[in-house]
Nucleic acid binder design. Structure first.
Lengths: 257, 257
DNA sequence: CTAGAACTGTGTACAACATAAACCAAGTGC
DNA sequence: GCACTTGGTTTATGTTGTACACAGTTCTAG
């Protein structure tokens, strides 16, 4: 990647994310647009992962030279950020949801759905705080869900960070387990076999009593061979844990001292 | 990075992680060792982040040629995985801990401590399931903490994944917020200013009522300018939420129908 | 004891990468 | 129409991971 990026310009990045370009009047008409470039990048990432997205590749896809992209986007880092922003469109919350818990469940599930459909989004290195319209809208939705609880802004943000953390972290772990083959170029079967051999070879009851017991009881099977649901049930399981935790916090907080 | 890695060899990676080399008898004595190489890589990452770790750089640090490293390590991907494994040493659990909750709290805090001291570990792309001795030992510790609850192996694993997800996700968000400057090369102040301007410009009460209210109430301050504690309090807050969730799950699970 | 096999470190080479700089043509405002 | 701004291209630079061939070293089989 050569030098990557010497310096970032937050203001320029924000302009791009929120699509408020100064709209130049002078020079020749632009043949491309930021949107086209971002969409091309997304298409490549959807098909072949984010590693396949290079400036050259995007430009080729559009039929222009590599350097032409730099007239629209300051750096590859910004392009990736724009891709994530555009890829994670936020659906409007349906009307039927009642109560913070139902709303947050919906929110978390929608959020993890983005990662499910655009797994590459998790591979884009996170360099700056969430700044794009969709990211902000997503925050707003979660906060709206919590609004009815009467908590302070700080408390609501704390809960949001905790929940986001869970969602992102779980998605990342799940994605890693599910996509070993795509990530390493080595067949899933080879990984499974190696992993199994590792477990039986190194996980002896002396040093790892609990793990060893679980392994022999075969409770590990569903993790060693993740199903097509991308650990969907597992995500829901953990989500309810977190929601339960929030509920208990509310009970304690609201109950008379 | 040219081609990065065409194919990974899980078995070779496992051999390296668990340090079970076939120990060759024939050729010249090796002047280097895997351990030295990994340590050199860790030193660089500690000082300048994982982006500064290149094969050339590591070799230079050791006084050898780039290609000599490939006699010890099959690829840079493996080197990074070894670095993470070695960097995340697992302390023995202290004796004083009583009850699963206290143990899990200790566990989660120790785990996030690793990320706190080696922030680069979060930047290493996660390509394979946890396989190294330290990763496994960490799993074992968490499972041991849960052992007393009498849950099934599957349930314990579900809880482990949820908790790990929270820990990793939160650490990643916190690290992003705390290290913008190091990551982008742009001063923290410039980011704060840009972010603040974004909030006031685009977050209008019409579209983002809740967020707008919180921003004007200044509940955002602590997030816009993360303190030295690396959102420590915030991590603890979310952790208790998750632990509460687990507790409630246990109560429900164990109570007579 | 000697021939070859196994192994180490090095040098060279290559393809891919992000991006800087100079350039010309296209369009606008004065 | 002239200066200035802008868009797309060309060319060039420095870095990256790693394939490959080679020369020297150490052990082992005969």
């Amino acid at each position: 990647m050569a030098t990557d990026q010497r310096q970032a310009d937050p203001n320029r990045t924000l302009e791009l994310l929120w699509d408020v370009q100064p709209a130049p009047t002078r020079g020749p008409k632009p043949a491309l647009s930021v949107r086209q470039i971002v969409d091309a990048g997304i298409a490549i990432a959807d098909a072949e992962g984010v590693a396949a997205v290079s400036m050259r590749r995007v430009a080729d896809e559009l039929g222009y030279t590599t350097m032409s992209l730099y007239r629209y986007v300051p750096s590859k880092t910004d392009l990736l950020e724009l891709m994530v922003e555009h890829a994670s469109e936020v659906p409007e919350a349906p009307d039927g949801l009642t109560g913070w818990r139902e709303k947050l469940r919906w929110w978390a599930t929608r959020t993890v759905d983005v990662y499910r459909h655009r797994r590459w989004a998790l591979d884009v290195p996170l360099n700056s705080p969430p700044m794009g319209p969709n990211q902000i809208k997503r925050m707003e939705q979660a906060l709206e869900a919590l609004d009815e609880t009467g908590l302070s802004g700080g408390e609501m943000l704390g809960i949001l960070v905790a929940l986001s953390g869970y969602v992102r972290g779980h998605a990342q772990l799940a994605s890693t387990l599910a996509d070993v083959e795509a990530r390493t170029g080595t067949p899933q079967a080879a990984w499974d076999q190696a992993y199994g051999r590792m477990l039986t070879t190194f996980v002896n009851p002396a040093e790892h009593p609990t793990l060893a017991r679980i392994v022999t009881q075969d409770g590990f099977a569903s993790y060693a061979e993740p199903d097509d649901e991308w650990l969907g049930d597992d995500f829901a399981f953990g989500l309810e844990l977190v929601l339960d935790g929030i509920e208990r916090y509310l009970e304690r907080r609201m109950s008379p001292e």
